[in-house]
Simulated scan of single mutants.
Amino acid sequence: MILLSPFDMFYLSSRFYFLRTVWRIILPLQAITFPDFFLADIFTSMSKVFSDLERSVCRMVNRQVATIAWFEADSICGSHSVAIPLVLMLPYLWRLFQCLRQYKDTKEKTCLLNALKYSTAIPVIFLSALKYHVHPDQWVGFYRPLWLISSVVNSLYSFYWDIKRDWDLSILTRIFMFKNPSIWTYLLYGQNWVLYWVLGSNLVLRCTWTYKLSAHLRHNYLTVFTIAALEILRRWQWVFFRVENEWNKMTAKQNMEMSSDMPSEGDRLLDSSNHTV
């Protein structure tokens, strides 16, 4: 209610900006800006949260709170509901459509490759949900291997994109010099182990995140809670390096524009107005 309050209190301008960005994410009909895809990326980490919210609203609407139906998988709001995978897919579909919109505006092929990354999450969610709608033998013999393969593809592709595109691997390769460490190591982070930790933890947590995207594994609440808490850490790390990379790009672009506007040494020497004859 505070978020939707029209009164000039609790940072009205910030709340309005947030709601406007959410609206732009849901309907990417305009050019995609950094806040649009930045918040949409964070929403992909909240897919399980959105699914749980949908489950809670469903149970309240259907009066299944504190009833035996809460534990029945076949109930309207049970674990077999098709709404679970649909809600889990939403953040990835939003981000997918953003990438397609970016490709329409820029014609850069990397936008299509980024869209492909988000599309790899859809088979993970869909195949997991099929467990409740196919024969157990079919699940074990055919669909579960497909789910495992799609999970590996999604995890590795996402990890690669994090370090190559979102964090700019070209900088990291200059830092990872064992005998001759780059000056970036000390100016940016101080210690090499920080980046080793970020890369290693990001790879592991990218793989474990698949657990939360899988509806048939959501019954182990302690494991799901632990992975959700670790995802907060992973996403914080991602945000830190992603914002820094964007800042570096903006700074480099500004420096290039400033250098192009400044006359070269030869131009200054040839400019007669700068000399007295």
Rank of each mutant, 00 (worst) to 15 (best):
W238E: 01
P35T: 03
K107Q: 15
F178Q: 13
N248H: 13
N274G: 15
F159R: 05
D36A: 03
E265S: 12
G266I: 10
I2T: 08
F126C: 09
D8S: 10
S81P: 02
A252T: 11
S170Q: 14
L195M: 12
I68H: 08
W238D: 01
S56L: 07
I163T: 10
V65T: 12
L233W: 08
K249G: 07
V49A: 12
V224W: 05
E246V: 14
C207V: 13
W197S: 10
T210K: 04
R235Y: 09
E231I: 02
T44M: 02
V194T: 07
D74Y: 09
P28D: 00
A215R: 03
V140C: 14
Y211Q: 03
E265D: 13
V49C: 09
L222K: 15
S182I: 07
E108W: 06
P6A: 03
V49S: 08
F178T: 14
D74R: 14
Y103L: 03
W70Q: 15
E265T: 11
S81F: 01
Q102N: 10
H135I: 08
L146G: 04
E231D: 12
K249V: 12
W184P: 03
V61R: 11
S158N: 09
F38E: 01
A121M: 11
A129R: 01
S273Y: 07
R242N: 08
T106G: 07
C99E: 02
G78N: 03
T185F: 09
E108T: 11
M256R: 14
F18R: 00
W147H: 11
F10I: 06
A73R: 06
M256Y: 10
R174M: 14
F225H: 14
E231Y: 01
F7I: 09
I232L: 10
R165F: 08
L86D: 08
V152M: 08
F43R: 00
L172S: 05
D267M: 12
I232T: 08
D74A: 12
I26Y: 05
Y160W: 13
W161M: 12
L113M: 09
S14F: 06
T276E: 09
M89V: 04
F18I: 04
A40D: 01
M60I: 14
V239S: 12
F159N: 06
F7Q: 10
S260Q: 15
R218D: 10
S81M: 02
Q98G: 00
E265K: 09
L172M: 06
S5F: 07
A31M: 09
D261C: 12
L233G: 05
F240I: 10
T21Q: 01
Q138M: 15
K131E: 10
S51E: 11
V49R: 05
S182R: 05
C207K: 03
T33Y: 06
L88T: 01
I25S: 00
K179T: 14
V124N: 00
P145V: 06
V204R: 01
W70H: 09
A129M: 04
M177N: 15
Y196T: 07
K117S: 04
V243R: 12
A121E: 04
H80T: 07
F38R: 02
N248G: 10
R174T: 15
T223Q: 13
